[in-house]
Nucleic acid binder design. Structure first.
Ligand code: DCP
Ligand code: MG
Ligand code: MG
Length: 733
DNA sequence: CATGAGCGCGCC
DNA sequence: AAAGGGCGCGCTCATG
């Protein structure tokens, strides 16, 4: 994608205007030009021509093409602008009992939030390829600052209906949402329905976007999906067009309708050509979570902006000191720059260390924290790590976090993508709430504070993937695995591993932090970490003075404790190599062909040539079913929590892979009741995936004033009984 | 100068 | 370092 050249006679005055601080914006189909009078007038002289570039529009041939696609699909566009007509056609659609209705919405920014969208140009006066989608332009995607203008629905009949929601009320078309629906990125539409129309779809909702991901291992846009599946070359210019115009153009209406048509076509292809029964089952689990996720996104995460500001100020102060220390330690080179740091390493490393120092993919010396921590006796490295850590916090969790807060709700509305990961885990974006600092920056999550009268409740599965692998091993060997027996006995395997690694005598001597550090050991070893990497991890983070021999011994001892796991790893991995894929309990597959290499690009003498070209990988083979089945547990858990808590004043506000975060009323009776329900649902979810699993200590509710300040529900109830208020609340002041 | 790959790093 | 896996995001630096 490159920037679009404007005609020469436009470029010059435009550049002058922009240099003088002027700006060009679009407001609907109008072009606004401001800046110093003379310069602005020079551009205004060409306003008509400029509009052709900056106002989204389709060319005549593209419009004709969209029309022809609709014709080929057998759908003519019928725009509905009256309530009575809307009721009539919706009744008709429902009476025809369609197998599915393709559905799509176009949204318009609410008048109160409508503002001109500034056009971005390059310094040379060309139109920038990437126009900003945040700020004013992003308002159209925000359910709190925009509303649905068009509802497009195609049930496979001769008309694709386009309802103009300025003239039609939600009540007029409500029965539509009792039909099975096929939607691309369904959470977006369902959010609108819940928030704006107070309607929740009662029929099956199919998300045709995540379905592509499930079977093709790629995640295209709707237009790309149309191209991949049917060779359609859909113009995308109108996606960002002005849906708030009084009268929409026929091209806009066609374009809008086409998306609904595409949704139904994709659904048909997926259900009838691509999916087998297992794919359908997987998709059903993921789709069931759509309403829960829609509500979760609408709720959003509350942020204590004042507390956050204090946190940032602290970081800046510390950074200042850390930078001074670094400058003292390395007066000549700025080690924050990779090249300078690498030069420094060449100076201070002995030949032996240098030759074994890990390299980046492009052959340079790595500068990653783990490697430098192992060598932090060398000059300036410890100082550098401190600077880097603070810089990271400031850059990733500083002002940018505040910028992401919604101006209407004053909360953080992260997007959660159901099965956004290959394994089926959620992905999160637009301030990824799943990566907020925790262990390394104790207390940061206190900025996520419940509003007055409410509390944060969090439920995180205990040792979830260890419990999952315990079940998979048991199924494979046909008898209770060692891990399953451990969990039935109430043991904590992370603690046990920490004890072993630290050479401690008693479990009680293992600290919380040591337990945290043992997690990567357990999961690393389960997912086929080698001796060297294991040794490096231990040295950098855990047991800094350990020898390689001792690390090898610890690793061997781990497998000696769990011989059935070693057997499962080898046998199951070999099995998936033959099978061509590895899969979760519900049947989500990771196909080796998705990472296969072209034989022509691989040297035949290369070791493990066969695996390289087939795409097989033993670590993926064992990780995918464990991580992925655990993700299915969480999908089910959210679905169940959302249903079970419907009668309560509780809101799900986030999920972090094996954790659900809620807001609940701040009174002991509610907390106790909601905690019990939530715990019960999460246990039930785990059992849906792993029916034979022990449930002792599986998940415990935690409560507190903030996400960073939680204690077990039991303790909280005791304290609230005596103190009569929220424990910890006073310490916040 | 705008763009994208590479890298590193936050979390689970 | 033939192997822990899964993400998203911010910065830098080479590329055109
Ligand atoms: N370095 C890590 C950390 C986590 N995980 C996976 C396995 C964990 O089971 C899961 C959830 O992470 P948690 O931090 O919740 O860890 P556990 O559930 O295992 O332990 P806890 O009992 O503390 O919740 O994520 C992983 O693969 N590698
Ligand atoms: Mg957990
Ligand atoms: Mg967790």
């Amino acid at each position: 994608m490159t920037s679009t050249e404007l005609p020469r006679h436009l470029r010059k005055p435009l550049r002058d205007l922009l240099d003088a601080g002027g700006r060009v914006a679009r407001d609907g189909s109008d072009v606004l030009i401001d800046g110093p009078t003379g310069l602005a007038d020079a551009v205004r002289a060409h306003a008509g021509q400029l509009a052709q570039y900056v106002v989204p529009a389709v060319r005549a041939d593209e419009a004709a093409f969209v029309r022809s696609l609709l014709t080929d699909a057998g759908a003519s566009v019928a725009t509905i602008t009256s309530p009575s007509e809307a009721r009539r056609v919706v009744t008709e659609i429902c009476a025809s009992n369609p197998d599915v209705v393709g559905l799509d919405f176009e949204t318009e920014v609410l008048p109160a939030y409508r503002q001109p969208i500034t056009i971005k140009f390059t310094k040379g006066g060309s139109l920038a390829a990437r126009q900003p989608r945040d700020g004013a332009a992003g308002a159209a995607l925000d359910p709190y600052r925009s509303k649905v203008r068009l509802v497009q629905a195609w049930a496979g009949g001769e008309h694709c209906f386009v309802f103009d929601m300025r003239m039609v009320a939600w009540a007029d078309i409500a029965p539509l949402f009792d039909m099975p629906l096929a939607i691309f990125n369904a959470v977006f539409e369902v959010k609108r329905l819940i928030h704006e129309a107070h309607i929740e779809p009662t029929g099956r909702v199919y998300d045709v976007m995540t379905a592509v991901w499930l079977t093709n291992g790629c995640r295209p846009s709707l237009a790309e999906a149309g191209r991949i599946n049917y060779g359609f070359d859909i113009p995308k210019a109108l996606g960002a067009s002005d849906w708030s115009a009084e009268a929409l153009t026929p091209e806009q209406l066609d374009y809008a309708a086409l998306d609904a048509v595409l949704c139904r076509l994709l659904w048909d292809t997926q259900q009838n050509e691509v999916f087998d029964d297992i794919d359908k089952q997987c998709q059903e689990v993921a789709d069931a979570a759509i309403p829960a996720v829609a509500r979760m996104e609408l709720h959003g995460m509350p942020v204590d902006v004042a507390a956050h500001r204090v946190q940032i100020a602290h970081w800046h102060t510390e950074l200042e000191a850390a930078q001074n220390a670094l400058r003292t330690a390395s007066p000549l080179r700025d080690l924050r720059k990779a090249a300078a740091l690498q030069a420094h390493l060449y100076d201070v490393l002995d030949a032996e260390t240098l030759s074994t120092w890990p390299r980046t993919n492009s052959g340079l010396l790595t500068t990653r924290r783990q490697q430098m921590a192992i060598n932090n006796h060398l000059p300036a490295l410890a100082e550098l790590l401190r600077v880097r850590a603070l810089q990271k916090l400031i850059n990733s969790f500083g002002d940018s976090l505040i910028d992401a807060i919604n101006p209407v709700t004053e909360r953080l509305h992260t997007s959660f993508l159901i099965a956004g990961a290959r394994t089926g885990r959620f992905a999160a974006r637009e301030k990824n709430l799943q990566q907020m600092p925790k262990r390394r920056q104790a207390g940061f999550r206190k900025i996520f504070a419940a509003p007055e009268g409410q509390l944060v409740m969090a439920l995180d599965y205990s040792q979830i993937e260890l419990r999952a692998v315990a079940e998979l091993i048991s199924d494979w060997i046909g008898t209770d695995s060692i891990l399953r027996r451990s969990f039935a006995a109430g043991l904590d395997v992370h603690t046990a591993t920490a004890k072993s690694m630290m050479g401690k005598n008693r479990l009680e001597d293992v600290t919380d932090d040591e337990r945290q550090l043992a997690k990567p050991c357990n999961f690393g070893l389960i997912y086929r970490m080698g001796n060297t990497t294991f040794y490096h991890y231990l040295r950098a983070d855990f047991v800094s003075d350990i020898t390689f021999e001792k690390a090898c011994e610890l690793r061997a001892r781990f497998f000696a404790c769990y011989p059935d796991m070693a057997r499962w790893q080898n046998e199951y991995a070999r099995h998936t190599r033959e099978q061509g894929y590895t899969q979760t309990v519900a049947g989500r597959r990771w196909r080796w062909e998705w990472r296969a290499q072209n034989p022509e690009d691989v040297d035949e003498d290369e070791p493990f040539y066969d695996d390289t070209i087939s795409g097989f990988n033993g670590a993926y083979a064992v990780n995918h079913p464990v991580q992925g089945s655990s993700a299915e547990v969480m999908q089910i858990a959210l679905t169940r929590l959302d249903r079970a808590l419907r009668g309560e004043r509780a809101q799900i506000i986030a999920t972090v892979h094996d954790e659900a975060v809620l807001l609940v009323p701040d009174d002991p009776a509610s907390v106790e009741r909601i905690g019990a329900i939530a715990q019960q649902e999460m246990i039930a979810a785990f059992l849906e995936v792993f029916p034979a699993a022990p449930t002792l200590n599986l998940v415990e509710p935690k409560v507190g004033p903030t996400w960073g300040d939680l204690q077990s529900l039991q303790k909280w109830l005791q304290n609230s009984g005596t103190a009569g208020g929220t424990p910890g609340a006073t310490s916040e002041l």
